[in-house]
């Protein structure tokens, strides 16, 4: 065991020596060197993060975040000066995405991973490609237009979410007397709302739009209220790999500044999407418009 550990350590120490390959004056390191050496780029993706990264009816990985993944693969090809690069797709989950990235199972992922300071201890994040705000889903005839209208109402949240914590805190702080229902899944929460048990559903706006697109009458439900918190979704990369991060950041920034990102947004958030032609009907938020004008990799918390 000790011997094995020793040789692993040795290999790790020697790795940077072998990995540096000269290319037009610039020394390739980290992930780019690995891709060059193997001739393979391994892209992590989600299986059901609609509409970011998920399977369509033909089991292809599609989505708004997947569009960015494709752009990044193209940029890597260009950077390495190769015309053919084998692209391997690896499905990941919220639980395994960080360990699998760190141990080299995949090279990067664009899905629905929040860039926060805690995760930055373990991994790096690219420029932000999506910003969510926590808001309310209510019936279109309800009198609720913002959080101040929640006094004495029944509000549903999904257990363990940021919104649950925020709602309890808000309730304590402002003495709002909100009756809080906590359910295990977003689907359960939406059913509470749809059946009339809850009068509002407090969650990330894009997830609310996703639940709404599955409703019996999607047009009955509206997303309202001032966002109570923001989260930034970024592509996740290995830590301490400035060369690869610069390439990914540049790719995302140019897509956002050129209008490419906005047309991808139109496709995934305004039009019918696979597999069943549901429509998210989710407008660009103010925070998103701002992001498309000023690409950045800032975490909100």
């Amino acid at each position: 065991m000790k011997k094995l550990f020793g040789s692993l350590l040795l290999a790790l120490l020697l790795l940077p020596c072998g990995a540096g390959i000269a290319l037009g004056g610039e020394e390739l390191g980290g992930t780019l060197a690995k891709i060059k050496k193997d001739g393979v780029i391994i892209v992590g993706h989600r299986e059901s993060s609609v509409p970011f990264s998920y399977y369509d009816s033909a089991q292809n990985v599609v989505g708004y975040a997947q569009d960015y993944s494709k752009l990044i693969v193209e940029a890597v090809k260009k950077k390495l000066g190769v015309s053919e690069l084998t692209v391997k797709l690896v499905p990941i989950t919220s639980q395994n995405r960080i360990p699998l990235l760190a141990n080299g199972t995949y090279d990067f992922e664009c899905g629905s991973t929040t860039n926060n300071l805690e995760r930055q201890q373990q991994v790096a994040f690219s420029n932000t490609f999506f910003i969510i705000g926590t808001r309310l889903l209510v019936h279109k005839d309800s009198k609720i237009t913002d959080f101040s209208d929640l006094k004495g109402r029944r509000v549903v949240v999904t257990a363990g979410t940021t919104s649950e914590k925020l709602l309890f805190l808000m309730n304590d702080r402002d003495k709002m007397n909100v009756q809080i229902i906590s359910t295990p899944t977003h689907g359960d929460s939406f059913r509470s709302l749809e059946s009339g048990r809850a009068e509002a559903f407090f969650l990330d706006d894009v997830l609310l739009a996703g639940e709404r697109s599955r409703a019996r009458n999607p047009s009955d439900w509206v997303i309202v209220g001032t966002p109570q918190s923001y989260e930034a979704y970024g592509c996740m990369l290995r830590k301490d790999d400035p060369q690869f991060k610069a390439l990914v950041d540049e790719t995302i920034a140019s897509a956002q500044l050129s209008g490419l990102a906005e047309s991808s947004y139109e496709q995934w958030f305004k039009k019918p999407i696979p597999p069943r032609g549901a429509i998210m009907n989710f407008d660009l938020s103010e925070a998103m418009k701002d992001l498309l004008r000023n690409p950045n990799d800032k975490a909100f918390q």
Binding site: R154, S195, G196, R197
Partner: peptide, 12 residues
């Protein structure tokens, strides 16, 4: 049914 669902969730 509607009245029941409109009760305080904890009690309901």
């Amino acid at each position: 049914g509607r009245d029941l669902k409109a009760m305080d969730p904890e009690i309901q």
